[in-house]
Design a protein around this nucleic acid. Sequence first.
DNA 1: GACCAGGCACATC
DNA 2: GATGTGCATGGT
Length: 222
Amino acid sequence: MPSTAEILKSYYDALYERFGPQHWWPGETPFEVAVGAVLTQNTNWRNVEKAIGNLKREGLLDPVSLHAVPRERLAELIRPAGYYNIKADRLHNLLTVIVNDCAADVDIFLSGAVDELRQRLVSIRGVGLETADSIILYAAGKPTFVVDTYTFRMAVRHGLVFEDASYDDMKSLFENSLPADTQLFNEYHALIVRLGKEFCKKRAVCSGCPLEPFPHTVEETV
DNA sequence: GACCAGGCACATC
DNA sequence: GATGTGCATGGT
């Protein structure tokens, strides 16, 4: 019987072979990645691109400028990304920390050990576990595994975890079985999202999934 | 028109 | 601690 590590490695290989490199995160700077991480909460990336495009067009895609934008104006600019009132507040909370606590220096904001940085991020109202991990991995370039709705779907449907697994259960599953490699975590998460977009819809049964179709029995699920 | 999308905080039990 | 709900645009 294959170990969890062997299964996860074979899944990665199968996904990479099927889809190739995903070139994540599609943002030009760490700051843009962090902004995108908030805007993409429960939202299609295409809508986020429109919102980020608005910010770029207005020349506001830097911490000081964006922090100075009035709430109503900010909400209007990010409107295409949905939940615009809530996200305007969440973005502003994030920007306040960068500007006031880190001298508007994104490198300082993203500095420190992974665990310490994660604590700092999740203490910001509007930054949850997934958003924090996305910022750590894709903006700071530090190895933390990002778990999202597709990761849950994939892992449950392939018998890797029980349905009631927590976020950190899922995170541990991957981190305990894979080397702490930023590029590997980057590509793996992006590939899972790609898989989800094509085969793993919310209600629909995954049809044509390139991964093993039957649940595995793993020696330990979390 | 229904369904879905790269979550999170908060209320209530 | 678990469960339910509001938040919202835009593509398929």
